[in-house]
């Protein structure tokens, strides 16, 4: 067994284990922290799979931004830091059944489909920042540009939804016309 394989196994087990904790821990903040472990392990796996740039992006965006946002969301909604009994519900069993079914079906399909196929990483082009940048700007300009619309829209959407609050709370309960008149005066 090569070093890469051993590392993959270790990272994979770490990812799976922490992922299980993400979905099962009763403490919401812990869930977010376990998610960090999962995402970091997956970043390691990307490195093993010749996707260097993806790995860094994973660390920067996922671990750096997404998890922070999720933590923000938890904190701002005043999530208790202690264990919460009702984060999961009585449907644990059916949910687990569905999950096991999904796992079994998917896993058997891919394993049966690709047994004997070896992933030869020796000659693979490593997706370094340079190569990935080149491909994106030579071959994937269109989705990249569309993505910029997506980001702008998400940004504006988030801002406008957050701004609803101030507009709303400051003059709740007063008739619309008064509010308008007031704004005109301002």
């Amino acid at each position: 067994m090569s070093v890469v394989e051993v590392l993959f196994l270790l990272l994979g087990l770490a990812a799976l284990g922490s992922a299980l904790l993400v979905v099962s821990t009763k403490n919401m903040v812990h869930a977010a922290l376990w998610l960090v472990v999962t995402l970091a392990s997956i970043a390691g796996i990307y490195l093993l799979l010749a996707a260097e740039f993806v790995a860094w992006v994973q660390v920067l965006i996922y671990v750096g931004a997404v998890v922070v946002l999720l933590l923000f969301a938890l904190m701002l909604t005043r999530a208790p830091t202690g264990p919460q009994p009702d984060t999961t519900v009585a449907r644990v069993l059916p949910a687990a059944a569905v999950a096991v079914l999904v796992a079994a079906l998917l896993a058997t399909t891919v394993v049966a489909g690709f047994t004997g196929v070896r992933l030869d990483l020796d000659g693979a082009v490593v997706g370094s920042a340079a190569t990935t940048g080149e491909t994106i700007f030579e071959k994937w300009v269109l989705p990249f540009e569309v993505l910029s619309v997506l980001l702008l829209a998400a940004l504006v959407g988030a801002i406008v939804l957050s701004r609803l609050r101030t507009d709303d709370t400051e003059d709740r309960g007063r008739p619309r016309e008064q509010r308008d008149a007031q704004e005109v005066r301002r």
């Binding site: 992922a19 979905v23 999950a99």
Partner: peptide, 19 residues
């Protein structure tokens, strides 16, 4: 490394996510 290793990992992770 066999190709199915990462695929299996992905399948299990996906199922955990579904759960």
């Amino acid at each position: 490394m066999p190709l199915w290793w990462p695929l299996l990992l992905a399948s299990l992770l996906f199922a955990i996510g579904v759960y």
